[in-house]
Design a protein around this nucleic acid. Structure first.
Lengths: 217, 217
DNA sequence: GTACAATGTTAGACGAGACTAACAAAATAA
DNA sequence: TTATTTTGTTAGTCTCGTCTAACATTGTAC
């Protein structure tokens, strides 16, 4: 249906969209590391295919069709990541690049099988929601750990950032999705939290706690 | 290192090679379903890269370097097929197309992991040998079932042909690699064999028994 | 409110990998 | 051995996705 290249543009448009669903050519260009004129001409092509709304000098917006296609690509990406972690034993920080390639495979059966083997998951190993087969996303409302109060006990549910370094940081601190966190104290000066989990108490900087999304209990 | 396109040419050259390692432009063109002039220009390109020996109006031959690269691609293909069958529960007839795509992924870790999870197999689900990590192939000598004699008991080890229809035929007859076959009788007129396996006796035509490779016991 | 900076657009080029049309060589048949 | 068919090659074109250079518009600062 779409080329890997087109799929990458759609995915980037989707993830870069602000509240109004707008993305600038410049942002897209930086994200994809592709020069602006190239991005520009691709946007015209995607506009011809009714995937984006394009008007010269205006921000870009995905059409409904574009959003759906993008969500389906994201779905494949996240299912793949999850499969690699859960079924093949890769670490969080290793899976992104592999998933970026596998997401473009033309084989519905392959993704269906992964979904099945994973038990139809709703959230990926990074805690991000996985769009369903029709491209719908169930957005769950999580709080930042940094916004929680002393004495609360919460469960690590997602991370906002999936940089290699951050994922390695999580691994090295034995922080995993589902880990129960008990907030023992908060340093009011810099927001550093003393958090107890796995029967140990550790310090988490504000920089880290802002990237951790939690749910109650 | 090489583009998916180049890899496909290398793989085709490898599998089409006759005893002398020769392949004609025409054969390659038919196999890949790509017109001869395109194949021709790609051969010049691969010759520049020292992957094939090319002289005008002469048959093509892979260089040692070309053979090694081709074997490594074949290795990825077969490891993938095996993984899909053994670990994901796909049927033999479903895996070829998926493996054709996955074999081109740029991720040594991914193939290493599959190899590991599969226990470093030497033969793929079709019974074909899997080249090792350095591109070497251990050729095992199998006999055709059609050449066996009445009373022999042999083990199905490989198939010579992986067409969809043939793989479905095997499935529908509960024939799998490793199945023990006891040859009860052979019809001398047309070579049809009565073979006992899985506690049932079935008739196998000569057309089928010529495609089945077996080993002793 | 003009000047400068940042962002967006147009035009033209290029390499990869496909094609067709036309021609050349080799193999085969008469 | 000549004619015909098959196979191989050359030349030129096309699309895709990238680029650079040049120009246009919008936003920002003074």
């Amino acid at each position: 249906m779409f080329s890997p290249t087109e799929e990458n543009y759609l995915k980037a448009l989707f993830t870069l969209s602000n509240e109004d669903g707008e993305v600038t050519v410049n942002e897209l260009s930086k994200k994809l590391e592709i020069k602006m004129p190239t991005v520009n001409s691709m946007m015209k092509k995607l506009a011809d295919k009714k995937l984006v709304h394009y008007e010269t000098y205006k921000p870009l917006r995905l059409t409904e069709k574009g959003k759906k296609e993008a969500a389906l690509i994201l779905r494949k990406h996240r299912l793949t990541e999850m499969y690699l972690v859960e079924k093949m034993g890769f670490g969080w920080e290793e899976v992104h690049n592999i998933a970026e390639q596998i997401e473009h495979l033309k084989s519905p059966e392959f993704f269906k099988k992964m979904d099945e083997l994973l038990g139809y998951p709703k959230v990926d190993p990074h805690g991000s929601p996985i769009p369903d087969g029709s491209g719908k996303i169930k957005w769950v409302q999580y709080r930042k750990l940094s916004e929680c109060l002393e004495g609360e006990t919460v469960t690590l549910a997602a991370v906002t950032n999936s940089s290699d370094d951050f994922l390695k940081f999580l691994n090295s601190h034995e922080l995993q999705l589902g880990t129960k966190l008990q907030i023992e104290s908060i340093e009011s000066y810099d927001g550093t939290m003393m958090v107890k989990y796995n029967n140990k108490t550790k310090a988490l900087s504000k920089i880290a706690s802002e990237k951790l999304l939690v749910k109650e209990r």
